Amino acid sequence: MFKRFTIIPSVRDLRNFEIALKSVSNVIFLSEVHLGNLKSLIKKCHDNNKIALVNIDLVGGLATDQMGIKLLKNLFKVDGIISSNSTNVNMSKMLGLYAIQRFFLIDSRGLESGLKALKNSKCDAIEVLPGLISTNFRDKIAKVKNVPLLGGGFITEKSNVIEVYKAGFVGVTTSEKKLWNDYSYLKQNR
């Protein structure tokens, strides 16, 4: 999924969904969706050769349990989930879905408990939030779990993307549509 650095559209406002479908990234994060619109959104992602990942913690009308995850896979055809809950991540992996663990950097106690939770997570990647602070903890997180790292949250400018890129992350997630297609400035910052 992360063969090269990618700027992943995080669609929080469905008015930006069509723009995300035209983005360079092969992955789209869907947030703020509900069971009524999810099937058509996933179909459009697949019709545009996009991997559709759903923030399971934010899907309206869905119970975040094993049956809910099975429903996402079998009925809605999602490719994977994003969650801050390790149990959801591990259940998703057992069902053959991609799973991205969200890791929030709030304070030192949160960092310690988050690192402990990561040890048992079966995640394919970790989205570390907020993105700009994440660069300070990259090595500490990578020592606990050797999977691709994404910086997310408050990624609003090219300079933010460059900072995360230079820190060795495999990508960023952002709802800032102006960042979704222009990668040219990264070549200057290798």
Rank of each mutant, 00 (worst) to 15 (best):
S92V: 14
L118P: 02
K77Q: 13
V78F: 06
I81M: 07
N85L: 15
L132W: 04
E127G: 08
E127P: 03
S113G: 12
I100W: 03
G131S: 08
K73Y: 08
N136G: 07
K116M: 11
A125Y: 01
Y98E: 07
I51E: 06
D65G: 09
T64V: 13
L115N: 09
I100A: 00
G96C: 11
Q101F: 07
K73P: 04
N48E: 10
L115E: 05
D124P: 05
I69C: 09
C123E: 03
N146F: 07
C123N: 01
V144A: 02
A117L: 14
L72Y: 11
A125W: 02
T135S: 13
S83R: 02
A125G: 07
A99T: 00
V78Y: 03
M94F: 12
V128H: 03
L129K: 10
P130F: 03
F103R: 01
L71D: 10
L132M: 15
Q66M: 12
G131E: 00
N120R: 13
Q101W: 04
N85K: 15
E112Q: 14
G61M: 10
I133N: 06
N74I: 12
V128R: 05
M67L: 15
K140G: 10
I141C: 05
S134E: 03
K93G: 08
Y98P: 05
R102P: 02
I69N: 01
S86R: 10
L97Y: 04
L115T: 05
N146E: 15
I133D: 09
L75H: 14
L132Y: 05
K93S: 08
N49E: 13
K50S: 06
G96D: 06
V89N: 00
D65E: 07
L75G: 06
N146D: 15
N49V: 09
T135E: 07
L71N: 14
N146R: 14
K70F: 12
F137L: 02
L53G: 02
L118G: 02
K93E: 04
G61I: 12
S86Y: 05
I126D: 06
S121Y: 03
N90Q: 09
N88M: 12
F103V: 03
T87D: 11
K119Q: 13
F137M: 01
I51S: 05
N120M: 11
F104P: 01
M67T: 13
S92I: 12
G60R: 11
V78R: 00
T87N: 11
T64R: 14
K70P: 04
E112N: 14
V59G: 02
I51G: 04
L97C: 04
A117D: 13
L75V: 14
S134D: 05
L105K: 09
V59Q: 03
I141T: 05
F76P: 03
D65V: 13
N49Y: 10
V78D: 00
F76D: 05
K145M: 04
L58N: 07
R138F: 14
L97V: 09
M67D: 15
A125V: 01
F76T: 09
L62Y: 05
